[in-house]
Design a protein around this nucleic acid. Structure first.
Lengths: 214, 214
DNA sequence: GTCTATAATTGGATAGAC
DNA sequence: GTCTATCCAATTATAGAC
């Protein structure tokens, strides 16, 4: 059961098609520049028909935010509480998050923009994302304390990491790379930036995949 | 002379104050979500008075784009044509661009969003920025060919780099770090990510600052 | 569940006085 | 150079028929 929660598969309901189309438009034109008419037209219905499926335009975006955050936040917080090398946990976070973002049926690269993440209308989701950021920063702080990571302000490094994820996600959504390869390239790039000794990367990758990666 | 081109200093004209305020609002609320009324109110004038200084809302953004691109593009293209180690040139590009972005009187972090960079209304500026991207990618390709940089697709790495710059710029605009230190931290982070041998970083930094950095 | 018709509001921009 | 008054287009959302 709950096969729907795992993958919507082929039989897209209208509601599902709205989410697919809206995520694509939000990603390319931005949230505020995307009109409900455009969404409706792309779906193949009239503008007022949208409101049978969602009570508002905001609700569409909120549903998309949930589809990402409800997976990413619990996973990151579990990793933050975990003991074990911070390097391995950071690797696991990056691989899990990127894989989820890229394999999502929705184009999630338009969600985490300033126009959305500073809009009071989305405060509860902004708060959720803050928790994600705190979790990442805890892992980074652990790695700095253990001497695994270069000693930079965790807030700065976390911002850099999220910047990379969002931008490269845009790339991945456009031209479909070999997802698996693409994902590993980005993770390696980030890990090399923060590791004091990048030569440890293969060993860290192995450890990350043995434990929780399967 | 041309002291104005270097720094607008204290005596801000209304036109200058419009640019300052608009850049701040574009950065936090996004371009489309920012209304001309908000800009006018923040400046201390009425909405129609804006149109004495700029023919349209678009023109305000276009002026801000020019203030960045007219500096960044020629510099990056000169570095791309240059011979000499790609690592040193990449370092110079990063330091120059970040310094310029951070020291600008305008908050430029709202300019390079999808809602702007995919809007046909800004096509000439989008083209300018494509030239910047091509220049960066040429430097990256040189570094890969010379065996200095890790062998990843240059488009992916360039996207990651611009992602870092835009996001950390947001940070820098908020809480004012020691700019000099902050800038070097970001540059080092990026260089470590792309260098095959990060131990070379101090030497590269020295070379970058000797030559064109002064 | 989708439609037509339309309400209610807000957006960028203009006209013309001062 | 700024103002008031206003236009016109576009936007989200609702009402109610089918």
């Amino acid at each position: 059961m709950t096969a729907r929660a795992v993958e919507p598969a082929v039989p897209s309901s209208t509601r599902e098609r709205i989410l697919l189309v809206a995520s694509e438009l939000f990603a390319t034109r931005g949230y505020h520049a995307t009109t409900t008419r455009e969404i409706a037209t792309a779906v193949g219905i009239r503008q007022p028909s949208l409101f049978h499926h969602f009570p508002s335009k905001e609700a569409i975006l909120q549903t998309l935010l949930d589809s990402d955050l409800d997976v990413a936040v619990p996973h990151a917080e579990a990793l933050a509480k975990d003991r074990g090398p911070a390097s391995v946990r950071l690797y696991q976070y990056l691989e899990h998050d990127l894989t989820h973002l890229i394999s999502s049926p929705y184009n999630l690269s338009g969600l985490y923009t300033e126009e959305v993440m500073r809009d009071p209308a989305f405060e509860p989701w902004i708060a959720k994302r803050r928790r994600l950021h705190r979790a990442i920063e805890r892992i980074l702080a652990d790695g700095v304390a253990a001497g695994e990571f270069v000693d930079l302000p965790v807030e700065v490094v976390r911002e850099a990491i999220t910047g990379i994820l969002v931008r490269t996600l845009t790339l991945a959504s456009g031209e479909h790379h070999e997802d698996r390869v693409f994902c590993e390239q980005i993770v390696s790039l980030v890990m090399r930036a923060v590791l004091k000794d990048p030569a440890r990367l293969p060993e860290i990758r192995r450890a990350a995949r043995e434990e929780g990666g399967g």
